[in-house]
Design a protein around this nucleic acid. Structure first.
Lengths: 349, 349
DNA sequence: CAACTTAAATGAAAGCTTTCAATATAAGAT
DNA sequence: ATCTTATATTGAAAGCTTTCATTTAAGTTG
């Protein structure tokens, strides 16, 4: 591959001039500029990103650290980030942590040696991102935290409006007449989980009803967790008339459990999810869910990063993206005669 | 960040010795080695991947070019690749092409300037990978082609056994009594699509039945395509009793179309998919599908790549991974009295 | 037209590794 | 004790770019 020396030689200019033309970093008179450009064209020259990065002490690589690309919510975020990164000349190195701090730490440490422009990270459950941030920022690497925010983080963030999304969803359930609510949420140490729970509880509190703590179950963000916790909830008396699932994966598990328990959603029990994955409309019944804009989270994060690199030194930014309740068919009014309230029945009869 | 010069100075050895210790590239006597290691430890030294890459003319970066991470089949492949890459010290730069040759070409060209160890690519529809391969291989960059193979490609490949998977699936349909089959396949210029079609046709030919070309519809690999083509097939006379979908996304669209047409799957019409995505068990009804091991495709591809980099110069490898028919509930025997054959009914009556 | 200012072009240095030819050291043989 | 030979160690060079202090050219002004 051609290098800059060859370009300079062919165009009969100095190395510095060639560099100036190629990077537009200084005035170069037209005839010389043209000669350089022609040489670039003729030799198909492309600057070595390695040499450039070495000299500039910064590459146009962005590290993206996420829990698991296999989790259906994350691809959209990654894609959003990749798209805006790419169109600004940046590339994405993708790293999965499996929500494991030690893996996250390894990535955080190793990525450093590539002198990335910045890092977009969806932190793991017990993330040590905050501790790492100092040394990164010292070396001029921008960091943006997405989706969930670790404790004491005071840098840029991009999140969905989890609290309000959960609040609206819960209010919807209450309006339909549900009083016996249950929730299966993700690990509460995640801020997004915490916020959803707060929204859920706020709606309930406003309606002046109480639900016992055993109706709020914590689990991992996956189908299995949703399944087993649903089985547990279904055995409770009184049985909940609706399950608020911390995300769609949990909701899918709940759907499966309800089916396996010989019950029917939404006739016997309603289920509402969070994420509004593509597949939510494919389930049986189609899942009512709170949608959050994964793609935009990615673009916003990459956008902030690029702004920072270009010199934006303003105070920490906190982009909060809107959620929206997507109505489908997994939520209906509660069954008119709850199995557990035989009294009502006798009253009627 | 500490550099090697500082290590050498602190350990009181030459630069070369420090390098030899750090890379294990030559014999170094114990006392020196120990001093170097201690200095590394003390300064928290990490070699600059940029300088190393520049000098070695090769980085430990693997470029992964895929159509779209948002397509639910690909994350597993990427994850598989990332896992084996990572555990061997390689990082993944992820690039989406949207099946667009020009985008693919841009990635192919730009990636070069990072001096990647290798490229794992799921080629786009009209890929020009074959043309690019020469120049890459000349510079010692390994290339592995995954899932679909472009024309004239003669390098390493990792694919699923598409032909056999489709053959078995179709045979299953025939055994259930289906005679009026239809297929909605992806772009036939993709080798995996072509292979699936060949398998589909072979099973039919062996059963000595014929189906008109209008019963084989080509579309894009997405829900919309599946939806519209299904609508089209449902209007045909005789109406097919089963739709063989080129992938699960198409099958999902078909499911939706059948529902919207007021029909019921599998009572009125059966649907079979290909991929066996996680969500296939969540649909209504749960989708019978041919599973292909996405994760293993990724690990196999990364494995070959790494072998090549380590010096394996054997002939082109062609890993073909097994598919398996996953039975669920979207396939049933054909309806006993097809609406289009009133004759049969009158005979009976 | 000389003196000076501004603009353009130059080339060496730096950024950090790895490689390799050259040198130094140790061990073994005579 | 001396010479070989094998083994360790060294330090300069190369890989490609960008930066910056200098030099050179062009242009302006009195």
């Amino acid at each position: 591959m051609a290098n800059m020396k060859q370009i300079a030689k062919m165009a009969n200019v100095s190395l510095g001039t060639a560099s100036n033309v190629i990077n537009n970093s200084a005035r170069v008179r037209e005839p010389l500029r043209k000669r350089v450009m022609e040489a670039v064209e003729a030799l198909g020259y492309q600057p070595s990103q390695l040499a450039r990065g070495l000299r500039r002490e910064k590459t146009n690589v962005i590290g993206m650290i996420i829990p698991d690309i296999t989790n259906p919510f994350f691809p959209a975020v990654v894609r959003g980030a990749e798209d805006t990164a790419f169109s600004n000349g940046y590339r994405l190195i993708l790293c999965n942590t499996d929500n494991d701090v030690s893996k996250e730490l390894i990535h955080l440490n190793e990525l450093r040696t590539y002198l990335p422009t910045g890092l977009i990270v969806i932190p793991s459950d017990f993330s040590e991102l905050t501790a790492q941030a100092v040394s990164y920022q010292k070396s001029g690497t921008a960091l943006v935290c997405v989706d969930r925010i670790p404790k004491h983080w005071n840098g840029d963030t991009v999140t969905a409006d989890n609290e309000y999304g959960a609040y609206c969803a819960t209010k919807h359930l209450l309006q339909l007449g549900h009083r016996q609510l249950a929730a299966i949420i993700g690990p509460t140490r995640l801020t997004n989980v915490e916020d959803r729970l707060i929204g859920f509880k706020r709606a309930i509190r406003e309606k002046k009803i109480k639900i016992g703590p055993e109706y709020i179950q914590e689990t991992t963000f996956d189908k299995q967790g949703g399944y087993s916790k649903t089985m547990l909830l279904l055995r409770m008396i009184p049985r909940p008339t609706v399950i608020f699932a911390g995300n769609d994966l949990i909701a899918f598990g709940a759907l499966l459990a309800v089916r396996d328990a010989g019950l029917h959603c939404p006739d016997d029990i309603s289920i509402i999810g969070f994420d509004d994955l593509d597949l939510a409309e494919m389930t049986n019944p189609p899942l009512t869910s709170v949608s959050q804009p994964g793609y935009q989270m990615g673009t916003a994060a990459a956008g902030i990063l690029i702004d920072r690199v270009r010199g934006d030194v303003g105070p920490a930014k906190h982009v909060v993206l809107k959620t929206a309740l997507k109505l489908r068919h997994s939520v209906a009014p509660p069954p008119s005669r709850p199995a557990t309230k035989a009294t009502k029945k006798s009253k009627a009869g």
